[in-house]
Amino acid sequence: MNTDLPPFALLIDADNVARDALAAIIEDLTRDARIAVRRVYGDFTTQHLAAWRDVIANHGFHPVQQYRNSVGKNSSDSALIIDAMDLLHSGRFAGFCLVSSDGDFTRLATRIREDGLRMYGYGRNDAAKSFVNACERFTYIEHLLEPTSRATLALDREEASKSVEATPPPTAGLAAATAVAAGTPCIRAAVEASPLDPLRLQTQLLRAHANVAEEDGWALMARVAQYVRANQSDFDPRHHGASSFSRLLEATAVFDVVLRKKGNGQTHFCRPKKTLTQPIASHHLNRAVPADYVQALRDAASKSQGPDGWLSALVIGQQMKAMGRDLKDSGCATLYEALAATGLFEMRATNGSREFRLREVHRG
């Protein structure tokens, strides 16, 4: 056992997680923490939690039995919260890990962070957003499971939904996971939280880089990852099909990545490519923009473009305003969406900002 890792208390709400996710959660958490306390809460006399008995024993958990004293009420939530506060006040832990998808734990998560402790969360892809955001780091358990385990996950959730006393309504996430259990072909994204579209992901990464970059434009890759995580607790490279943050950066094709000397060793630095032409997302191209607004965008770009044809959305927006055109006339939420939907422009990222150019400028 690595005693150098910070001690964590791992508390699991059995009503809100599948038993087959337990091993994957432990494996993921022990990369960064030493699990000093392992407790799982629920009414294990009920049918849908009876199968937890062997799993609890195999992983060394202390089960906290909580009978349902009222129909429709989950008394294990209260027991978990009380125990968490007792453990918090003991001062023995560097952090907590709560495994649940229930928004009722939001205040507990924020209270733990207020004491300066780390707060990690694990839950389903339909976890309450308030709880997700209250955690310092939140991991969707669907990311951790192999396809066969996902099938068991779906069955567990179906079992729980049949319980007379429990019963959250079916959700889109449950429907997708059930499809896996039934053998329906289903890509990974169908049972995970929907990933950001490529352009939003690139923008997020570029913004993170801009906030942590050094004077020469290079930034420690680890600091970029840390910044993204700090601003989006459920950010996970696996959510985008990458096994690590470095592989995610490589896959976006937005950054140059180099190994540079730092201190007594070497570490990875990244910097946006000097000029990066990016495709316009296909779902933007399917939107209809009124013909007169499209012509106005063409005219605005033609009047404002530089020698190489490239110009920023800000410049186009100012020209459109001078022409008396209003964004609401486009039917789009942002000028970027309007520019993308016309199909007239190509886009590039230059040192963290977007620029546009009429396609016809460089055709011949």
Rank of each mutant, 00 (worst) to 15 (best):
R188E: 11
T178K: 06
A127G: 06
L174Q: 14
A172N: 11
S163Y: 12
D234F: 14
V191E: 06
A166W: 09
E214T: 15
C135H: 08
I187A: 14
S163M: 09
L205T: 04
V164I: 12
L174G: 08
R238H: 04
A213Q: 12
H239A: 15
N125P: 10
L248M: 02
T184Q: 11
A182F: 14
F138A: 03
I187K: 11
A222V: 03
E165F: 03
L248F: 01
N125G: 14
T152L: 08
L196G: 02
P237G: 00
T152I: 07
Y140I: 10
C135G: 06
P195F: 07
Y227C: 05
A193C: 05
L220N: 07
F131E: 01
Y140N: 06
T148R: 14
P237L: 01
R157I: 11
A172M: 13
C135T: 10
S233V: 13
L201M: 05
C135M: 06
P198G: 07
E159A: 14
K162G: 11
L201P: 04
A189K: 13
R157G: 02
L174F: 14
L206A: 13
A172H: 10
A151P: 02
A219W: 02
V180L: 10
I141F: 01
V191C: 04
T167H: 08
L145R: 06
C135P: 04
A179W: 03
E142I: 02
P170S: 10
T203A: 09
L248D: 00
E159H: 14
A154G: 13
T203M: 08
V212C: 08
F131A: 09
N231V: 05
D236C: 01
E214P: 01
L249N: 00
H240Q: 03
A175N: 13
S194H: 14
T148V: 08
Q226C: 01
D126Y: 08
G173R: 08
E165R: 14
G217Q: 05
T252G: 02
F255Q: 06
C135V: 09
A222N: 04
T148Y: 11
V212R: 04
M221G: 00
E165S: 13
V254E: 12
A179V: 05
F138I: 03
A182P: 00
F235R: 02
P170R: 10
Y227E: 12
R229S: 06
G241Y: 09
A251D: 04
V180H: 07
D216K: 04
M221W: 01
A230C: 12
P195V: 08
W218F: 12
P147Y: 01
D236N: 08
V191L: 07
R200L: 09
F138H: 02
S244H: 01
S161M: 15
A176L: 07
I187V: 14
R229C: 01
A189E: 10
Q204K: 13
T252I: 05
G173Q: 09
G183E: 09
A134F: 02
S243K: 11
F245H: 00
S194M: 13
N133G: 10
Q226Y: 06
L201A: 03
Q232R: 15
L199C: 11
E142T: 12
A222S: 13
P198Q: 11
L155T: 09
E192M: 13
P168T: 15
R200V: 13
Q204W: 05
E250R: 10
